[in-house]
Amino acid sequence: MMIAPALLKDFIAFLRKDKLGLLGLLLIAGFIIIGVIAPYIVPYPEDAWGLTYNVERRLQPPSRAHPFGTDEYGRDVLSRVILASRFSLIIAISVVTLSLIIGVAVGLVAGYLGGWIGSTLMRVTDMFLAFPPLLLAIAFASILGRGLENVIIALSLSWWPWYARLTFVQVSSVKTMPYVDAAKIAGIPPLRILAKYILPNSLTPVTIQAFLDMGAAVLEAAALSFIGIGVKPPTPEWGLLISDGWILIGKAWWISLFPGIALFITVLGFNLLGDTYREYSNPKIRRLAEARV
């Protein structure tokens, strides 16, 4: 169990009553579902993948045939926006997973071993944390160059320190808990204690954070793509689509607007759920919330 089961049950009960939180959950669910089935629902598949160039269909405003209009290559914007959600989903999940793997590993080792190894690892982590994450991501992306994999790597490299620190703090406190002592007294082998007693009890804050961070990952990937060091065209990605339409914003507003809205709604979903979670985990605010209805 990555998240303490009692917590999950409890949070779900709380979430049920929170309309905004439920909206957030809905938006996130929408994002994930569309991301998964995107290739099958795009009206113009070749447009979506960027494989076409139809001069006669260029720069058409929204119409029945093209609800989001067409871009300067004559590609259907709706299809591009839908397919872009898949890439955002891939990026979000990959970044968060990769960062978790690296971060949790570092935090676990540092927290469990403590001493000078722990301090050293945390010092290194702190060095990374001293930089604003986007800046770090930009630095890495510039070195690695454009491309989907590079975006994922660049973002993960800038992200893992947060999870390392979260994990470190948790592990440091969990290893002093009586149930860890009890496991030692019962003769349970140290590796099993690490895996089943320390790790699961340290993961909850960091996995929750990771899930909610997916929104931020989508946003940062879009930012990288927007300034030209993210995904390689013609791969559709919301940030890239926005920047594509940027120079034409006055004449063909639809090219940037719709990807922008999609990005906004997705990030909003994660933020709303994140807000509900923050409310849930703060006892004072939570009691006020429970008094509602």
Binding site: M1, A6, P178, Y179, A183, K196, P200
Partner: peptide, 24 residues
């Protein structure tokens, strides 16, 4: 063996009762 003061902190919160005892 040992029994601690607060059972909620001396039992692994992420393990079911049967697994806690099985491990031991």
């Amino acid at each position: 063996q040992m029994v601690f003061q607060n059972p909620y902190t001396s039992l692994n919160p992420t393990m079911k009762v049967k697994d806690i005892i099985k491990d031991v």
